[in-house]
Nucleic acid binder design. Structure first.
Lengths: 220, 220
DNA sequence: TTATTTAAGTGTATATATGACACTTCTGTG
DNA sequence: CACAGAAGTGTCATATATACACTTAAATAA
């Protein structure tokens, strides 16, 4: 039996969550739109296979990934019996290697406007996004979609994109700042306003310390 | 590459969550304690493989199952390269076929006192229980561990077992009754008190209707 | 028949969390 | 120096969660 991994590579830009899609130039399923996948080699773990695939398509190493699940219907792939293990990977789109876009014929698509995908890839994407929503409500996974330094308006629009609904600015800021895991920097991002918004960064050590000591944290 | 399913079969009895364990009579790993597993056949889906394994060890068909995840470290099984997909199954222990216990050399063990298990099965169990806790907080999965008719004290002790901490009787009853998905029957269980406790049953139709209409329900 | 025992069943008050809501401040540009 | 536009800030009302102790039903024993 063949085992493959399929990767939902997600990035965040212009207040939208985007997914990297391949437009297939060759058979099988030439012309179809597909997620990135690959067969798992005998000498690599599932995680290693995902890291290999993601690095190959994006140039990003040490990517943050979460497993969505294994899909094993008998006829899910007409090409043969393949069990697919689906992961999503969250990358900072600034680290994406643009040159690989042409080489592999990929494009970033807003998750709100993804058209049809081959096989059961649409299902994979929907399940991954559901998983991401659940995960980001209780774990600090969203930061993997942002640069190390980000502003609160950016962070808010990220959560608004993940949950597909707007949040109240004051309540949002109160909540994330009260958690005590954001570090305010003495520097502003002036790209989106004259006044500028202060940069923050996520303090992972503090977060881990709080989790270890049973402080329960919920994001949004 | 081989694909196997491993099943964490859980049951509830005497206020405790129990897991079915095999004491292996034959090699490989003779004498070890193990979860129920089996290789996925070419003509069956993952779910079908789990259903086959669970029915074989318990006699219970149409079992409720949830996938925990796929485990694919290269050397997780010294016998060869095997990707294992882990599921947990929740059964009503009254439906368990006791005859199969001797046939397969299995036993029910309180999850609080499970000793060492072979390979990475301990990890599987821990991950499954974590999954169960998360799942039962927001979905009515616990009922699969109870007979169709159950009392509120039973239901409460089930949740206490799942979360491994005690709950306030009044708050618990208020919460589950206010949800409006339990149907009170005109019948009492007198096995654990002179007064007897009323039987209830879970109204799945009502629950599904509420979910469909966006009423958000949280169990505990 | 009455007293005793044991678990089932019930309500309120307080604390905490959530959600709604509008104005001021900063700073670059015209 | 006025204007524009996004960043930043606090309070009050409501909903939810939590803490807490007595009464009731019914079998059994006296």
């Amino acid at each position: 039996m063949l085992v493959s991994v399929d990767c939902i590579i997600l990035g965040f830009q212009d207040k939208e969550i985007n997914v990297l899609i391949v437009k297939r130039k060759f058979n099988p399923l030439k012309g179809g739109r597909s997620l990135m996948g690959g067969f798992v080699r005998k000498d690599e773990s599932l995680n290693e296979a995902v890291a290999r695939v993601v690095a190959g398509y994006t140039g990003v190493e040490n990517v943050y990934m979460e497993q969505v699940g294994a899909y094993g219907e008998v006829n899910r792939d007409p090409g043969g019996r393949v069990v697919s293990v689906v992961y999503y990977a969250l990358i900072d789109m600034h680290q994406f290697d643009e040159q690989l876009k042409d080489r592999h014929n990929t494009e970033w698509v807003n998750v709100k406007n993804v058209g049809p995908l081959i096989l059961d890839h649409r299902q994979f994407l929907d399940d991954a996004l559901r998983h991401l929503r659940i995960q980001s409500a209780t774990h600090p996974v969203g930061f993997n979609l942002l640069p190390e330094q980000f502003t609160l308006p950016q962070l808010q629009s990220l959560y608004e994109a993940i949950y597909a609904h707007e949040l109240d600015k004051r309540n949002f800021r109160k909540k994330v700042l009260d958690m005590g895991v954001l570090e305010k920097l003495d520097k502003k991002d002036k790209s989106s306003s004259k006044r500028g918004a202060f940069y923050y960064k996520f303090n992972k050590e503090k977060y881990d310390y709080m989790v270890k000591n049973g402080v329960d944290i919920s994001f949004i």
